[in-house]
Design a protein around this nucleic acid. Structure first.
Lengths: 134, 134
DNA sequence: CTAAACACCGTACTCAAGTACGGAGTCAAC
DNA sequence: GTTGACTCCGTACTTGAGTACGGTGTTTAG
C-alpha cells in the first residue's frame, strides 16, 4: 500500500518521497508543487501525481539543477519544448565543466603543496603556510 | 606609492587588496583581521601586515578553504605546525576530489541526455524531460 | 473520551560570505 | 568654508535550500 496507494497526507507523501514535510511545504510556498484542495476537516490530500513531481524534482536536483531551473524544466512540454530543454541541459553541462576545471586547479595546487610538505626538507618552515603568506 | 606605502586607510587598503571595504569590516567582525588602533580623529590606520594578511586570505580562498579554516590556518606556526597544516590541506584535497567525482557523475548523466536528445528520434518526446518524470 | 500523533499556516532561523543602509563624524580641495 | 569624499559603527538584507517554532485544529488508537 505504501507505493501504490493513490492518496496521501503530507506526512505519508513525505515518507514516500524521502523528503521532509517542511520541504514539501517549502516547495508549495515557492510554487514548485501545487497545494491540493482541502477535503473534510481541513487536511490536504495528495496524489500519485504529487509524488511523481517530487521525485522529478529530486532527479533534477541530482543532475545539478536549482529549484528555479527545475520550475522552468517541469513547465516544459515533452513534445514541443525539446530544444528549450536541451539548451538548459547543455548550459548546465558547460557550467559544471567550468566548475570541475576550477576545482581541479585548486586540487592540483593544493596537492602539490601537500607533496612538497611531505617530501621536502623537514627542518624548513611549512611550505603550505609559506605559500599563503608569500 | 600605491603598493609600497606602509600606511593605509581602510579605503586604500581595500583597493590595494582588491577587496571591498565592507569585506574588510566583515573580516574584522569575524576576528579574521585585527582592528588597528585609531589615531588622531578616529580613523584606523592599516599597515603592510594587514595587506599581507588580506592577500593570504585570498590565496587560501582560491585554494578552497573557508574563512573558518583560514582562521585556523593563519594561526598556525610555520616552524612547529607543519603536520597540522598538511593535514588540513590533505583533508581539503580529499573533499575537493569527492566533489569533483560527484560533479563528473552529474555532468556525464546530463551530457548523455543531451546527446540522446540531439541525435535521437526528433519526433519522439524529449528524452531529458522523460528522464525527469520517469 | 482523552492523549498522542498528525496537519495547518505564517514567521523566523540556519549557513557562508559577504553587501547594503543609515546616521554621524572627519578630512581635502576648490 | 563648504561641498563632496571618506570613515566610523551597528544592524539588516542577500542567496539557496531548506529547517524549526509556535499556536491551533483534527484524527486515531487505546
Amino acid at each position: 500500500m505504501a507505493t501504490l496507494s493513490s492518496s496521501y497526507t503530507i506526512g505519508t507523501l513525505a515518507r514516500a518521497a524521502q523528503v521532509n514535510v517542511e520541504t514539501i511545504r517549502y516547495y508549495q510556498r515557492r510554487g514548485l508543487l501545487p497545494r491540493p484542495a482541502v477535503v473534510g476537516g481541513g487536511y490536504r490530500t495528495y496524489s500519485e501525481t504529487d509524488l511523481a513531481r517530487l521525485r522529478a524534482i529530486k532527479r533534477a536536483q541530482h543532475l545539478g539543477f536549482s529549484l528555479e531551473e527545475i520550475e522552468t524544466l517541469l513547465s516544459l512540454n515533452e513534445e514541443t519544448d525539446r530544444v528549450k530543454a536541451r539548451n538548459l541541459a547543455q548550459d548546465k553541462v558547460s557550467l559544471i565543466d567550468a566548475r570541475i576545471v576550477q576545482l581541479m586547479e585548486m586540487r592540483n595546487a593544493l596537492a602539490e603543496l601537500v607533496d612538497c610538505c611531505r617530501h621536502g626538507d623537514t627542518a624548513a618552515p611549512c611550505p603550505i603556510l609559506r605559500a599563503l603568506s608569500a
